[in-house]
Design a protein around this nucleic acid. Sequence first.
DNA 1: GCAGTTGTTTTGAATAACTCAAGACAACTT
DNA 2: AAGTTGTCTTGAGTTATTCAAAACAACTGC
Lengths: 149, 149
Amino acid sequence: METVTDAALADTLREAGLKVTEPRVAVLTALTDIPHSDADTIFGAVLPSVPGTSLQAVYGVLAALTTAGLLRKIEPAGSSALYERRTGDNHHHIVCTECGAVRDVDCVVGHAPCLTPSDAGGFTVQVAEVNFWGVCPDCQTALTQTSAD
Amino acid sequence: METVTDAALADTLREAGLKVTEPRVAVLTALTDIPHSDADTIFGAVLPSVPGTSLQAVYGVLAALTTAGLLRKIEPAGSSALYERRTGDNHHHIVCTECGAVRDVDCVVGHAPCLTPSDAGGFTVQVAEVNFWGVCPDCQTALTQTSAD
DNA sequence: GCAGTTGTTTTGAATAACTCAAGACAACTT
DNA sequence: AAGTTGTCTTGAGTTATTCAAAACAACTGC
């Protein structure tokens, strides 16, 4: 049913110099549907379409695709590693402290204040990793209703 | 020898409403000497002065002190949790991708651009976690010399 | 279309960081 | 000095992740 998408993903893999395999396409498909997923979640999403696969295979695929630049790995404090397909632009993330939901946060366009620390102490800064922590709209509602009881 | 410091640390603990124990003072002392240390490193530093202690005890102390606000826990992607005594001010960190060295980076005083994402998507932002990645001066030197061979 | 080569996946086990639980023990209170 | 409360010790367990070797499949050239 989603052959078109699969073909596009196959091209994406080929362009990155990677062999096109079922698990890899399935992982990319899963991450297109549910971004910011951890290895276990991806494994669960992939399992129906690739019955014989294993969690280790997913780890292998994720590592290969991350190395190839097709995936970005984010590791918020306290959670396991999450993966997303949006690479290249350097956007950040906001994590809900209540439910763990993750959402993309675009950096201010035009200048990147986060990338220029006031004093790097002689370090050569290469990348900035920015994670915001807060409460998502759903959990705000839930919390308000609870306190209103 | 460092009784003065120990007494000060004891007061710090007491003011936080915590009981003053040898392991706790030792952990605070260790983190005063070597900030940005992980549990295992702290354990190693504490062991000589508290012979009968264990890694689990260190974890327990670190958790208690972090909850009490005496310690800040930082978790850079890919490494284990690190602890430091500098709390209250919201400074950030830069991690060397070569050797793992960590250094404090003060946020730009006056305004905190990193704390105000362009679009939080309805999230209520509470804290921003910023980690820079780069190469420390020592490793820069080492890399330059290697490539000059 | 078919065999070869290279790289990927499967299978199984191992590691590291961290957490949990129960009893022994020590710090502060009166 | 004794009691209470909270802390530490000891030991085991959990989870995310990685490593290694053999089976297997994808792209190449014939």
